[in-house]
Amino acid sequence: MLDVVVIGGGAMGSAAAWRLAARGRPVALLERFAPGHTRGASHGASRIFRLVYSDPGYIALAQRALPLWRDLEEASGTAVLDITGGVDHGNQAVLAALSEALEAAGAPGKWLAAEEAADQWPGLRFTDRVFFHPSSGRVHADRSVAALQQSAAGLGAEIHHETPVEAITVRGDDHVEVVTAGRTWHARRVVVAVGAWSAKLLDGLAPLPPLRVTEEQPAHFPARDDAIAWPSFIHHLGDDVYGLATPGEGVKVGRHGGGPVVDPDARDFAPLGDTARRLRDYVREWVPGVDADRPAPISCTYTSTPTMDFVLDRVGPVVVAAGFSGHGFKFTPAIGEVLADLAIDGRPAPARFALNGKLSRT
């Protein structure tokens, strides 16, 4: 019998397998699709990394993730995190709350006048003062998942792709049965980190808040001048917009959430006409450093909770990781530690994480 079977080979499941294997636990990772697939939320070349939150729990989780990203790079020999600095602009009350929270967490940022920010980042347009944080940047998603799995395997974890799970059955407090087409797995614990498929696979096994699965379509826009610098950026408009440079692909810009609800097994990946038009209109007005008329659309899923907070929980021998709501990737290696803690000890280690009730329901 294994100690843990991890179901889901995206970012969170792969991170859990890495951290469990690092503790010497016999673990197997089962992934439904082939390596590098584009069906979920962990593919592509770029995700924003940032400490910038108004919630101290998220700041603490990002602070823990930063050195773990570096540990992953060292373990795998793969560069995954680039620090570029990041800017937040728009709603001044929101920016003030972010600034205050980071100051309290010992990670202050810096205020810049709109003119100063425009001089530094001429590819963006600003109309009011800007909040700059030097620790922001980008994480390469595809490389990260591959590096996590490589590092887990190097520590003894079994990695199985194209292995869809057909059933999970709890046989006792320390026994879970996981059925795939070719094998029945037995383990003391199971970690379920399957993104958009969470409600389907966990039905009857663990209580979940309502999970809204949407198809999101950001796009890469070609830069007009490859020599100019790009920070990661968030524009707080109520309907927030994010962006960052993706080397070799352009500048990625997208609206945070708001895409149509989809069944993850019935996506057609077709361009969303009105969504694409609204994004081009935004880019034309606020991102003058790119060509707004030449987007290369991207498609991914968000699995969102009503509060946009994560579900990190354990029910008996079943550990749940769900509802990352379009902003979880930056925390990936730290989430892996939380899931390992839950699987082994039943709760996150309080000395390691200043988690609040929003981040974990345990």
Rank of each mutant, 00 (worst) to 15 (best):
R129P: 08
R280F: 00
D313V: 05
H89N: 08
P297S: 08
E215D: 01
A34Y: 09
L202Y: 07
W18Q: 03
P122T: 00
A79R: 14
W18G: 00
A113N: 03
E73V: 09
V80D: 06
E31K: 07
P134N: 05
V283T: 02
P247K: 14
G346Y: 02
V262M: 14
P231M: 01
V192E: 00
P108N: 10
S325V: 04
A157E: 04
D268Q: 05
G172D: 10
G250L: 12
G257E: 08
D225P: 04
L205N: 04
A97N: 03
F329E: 01
G106S: 05
F310K: 00
E73M: 13
V5H: 01
P122Y: 00
A349R: 15
R361G: 03
G248L: 07
T303P: 13
W286T: 05
S198P: 11
P56L: 08
S304H: 09
A219N: 03
F126E: 02
I83M: 11
D88W: 11
G36C: 15
S151I: 05
S14V: 10
E115Y: 05
A276Y: 02
A60G: 11
R125W: 01
V145I: 07
S76Y: 11
D240Q: 04
A96Y: 04
R278H: 10
D119C: 01
P222V: 07
P35W: 12
F269Q: 14
S151H: 02
T246G: 01
G90Y: 08
H160C: 09
E74A: 15
L98P: 01
D268E: 10
T180M: 07
I83T: 11
D142A: 09
T305W: 11
L102C: 15
A334D: 00
A105S: 10
G24A: 15
D239R: 14
P56A: 10
T301G: 00
T332L: 09
A193L: 05
G259I: 03
I83D: 07
A65R: 04
V165H: 03
R347P: 09
R278M: 04
R25L: 13
I335K: 03
D239A: 12
A343Q: 06
G123H: 03
A292P: 15
S198T: 10
V253S: 01
G13C: 05
M12L: 08
G238D: 12
H89R: 04
A41N: 10
S46P: 03
G248R: 06
F33M: 12
P260E: 11
D119L: 09
